[in-house]
Design a protein around this nucleic acid. Structure first.
Lengths: 212, 212
DNA sequence: TGTTGCAAGTTGACGTCGTCAACTTTGATC
DNA sequence: GATCAAAGTTGACGACGTCAACTTGCAACA
């Protein structure tokens, strides 16, 4: 019924056994999440997009949720990589912190599908050890960054973990609010690009709010 | 088949027409969200919990999503009320800000079902004007609070909206991370109660991170 | 008082979904 | 060239959201 003699192995769409169905399904899932949201993603539709039967995905993922978990782990890796390369070759510590915040926000926008999956309650509710490890790696990167700033005498001492917590919370919260368009109708968020919002958040974090 | 002559109108479970099915469905939905998550909530199961047929909910809500939206609006109102009463009779401005943050976090924990619905991507994706208005009311309360602090000379001037943004982002992000147990395996979040985490976040926000 | 009309609730159906079980195809290994 | 596990397919099941058509109950009005 289908192609029997494979034409001389073009790099894409390789074999009868589909080549890399696992990757295709994950890509299809990302597309569906981007347009329909996490809960609008369907195993069967991903299978259709990959031209396989509705049960083929079960050869690669034990369930719909596990496919999402794999996407979340992948996304955490991409996020960590994005953060690391955002501060590579930057030596001024406050500049590094600023760039980390902006990179986080821009990752949430540019990889919105990954980001939504990473923090979807469905995934959170069924988190695996691998996902937890990936999340912890990102947080530890934040911590090590602030540790370096403290040792350089740039930030207040003795509260590195606390500062990493508030920093992550603030930029993560801002990203969530931006992604869900909650800020669209507020005076401060309406006409600002995500990057500017991230900059404002980090700036307030660094300088504080109280009069000095 | 069922009771025909209504026994002298007891206040609860009133009539044949169920009394207040709308409220019962929303309560059932909250219970389901609390145990199964937002995406685990089912119209049919809510109907079963209220002892009506699987289509009775459609006499009160045009769709499953609209029931969730109603819950989100209700939750925003409860949140605003909780914030307001948290600072009633408190006069010291920094104390007020601290209490607002703690109240936000405690609302997210105590009303986890409402909170999850309020910020579920399903609801965000289909937001109505009423929901947007309810969200804006909360944010404007934050802003007016900081405005008062500024006029009292407690916080830095000229950036009220910015500070409201970062404050909301930080405490909201912290609440989301706590709710999804993302902090459970971090050094700073593992052994702290949500209230302490909120306190840390607000404290860092007020004082800033940089050396002075 | 009797009729009428509308809101609330029910029944049944449709298409879609996630998942299970049993089957077939494919390609590598000895 | 036979074997065998991995990869993919077919068909089924129950549950879901939603639509359409029906029934029940209450209240307003003649």
């Amino acid at each position: 019924m289908k192609k029997k003699t494979v034409p001389p192995s073009l790099p894409v769409k390789a074999a009868y056994h589909h080549g890399d169905l696992r990757r295709s399904l994950m890509d299809a899932a990302l597309g569906l999440v981007a347009t329909n949201g996490v809960q609008g993603f369907t195993l069967r539709e991903a299978a259709r997009a990959a031209n396989v039967s509705h049960n083929a995905p079960y050869r690669h993922f034990p369930s719909r949720t596990h496919l999402l978990i794999e996407l979340a782990i992948e996304g955490q890796g991409l996020l960590l990589k994005a953060l690391q390369s955002a501060v590579a070759r930057v030596t001024v510590h406050t500049e590094r912190v600023q760039r980390l915040g902006i990179a986080y926000m821009e990752f949430a926008i540019a990889h919105a599908a990954h980001f939504r999956v990473m923090f979807s309650s469905d995934v959170a509710r069924n988190r695996t050890e691998a996902l937890t490890a990936a999340q912890n790696a990102t947080f530890q990167f934040f911590e090590s960054e602030l540790q370096a700033s403290e040792e350089a005498g740039v930030i207040r001492t003795g509260a590195v973990q606390q500062h990493a917590l508030v920093g992550w919370s603030a930029i993560h919260g801002a990203a969530m609010l931006v992604l869900d368009h909650v800020l669209d109708n507020t005076a401060v968020g309406a006409r600002r690009k995500p990057r500017e919002i991230a900059r404002l958040v980090i700036q307030s974090l660094l300088e504080g709010i109280l009069v000095r």
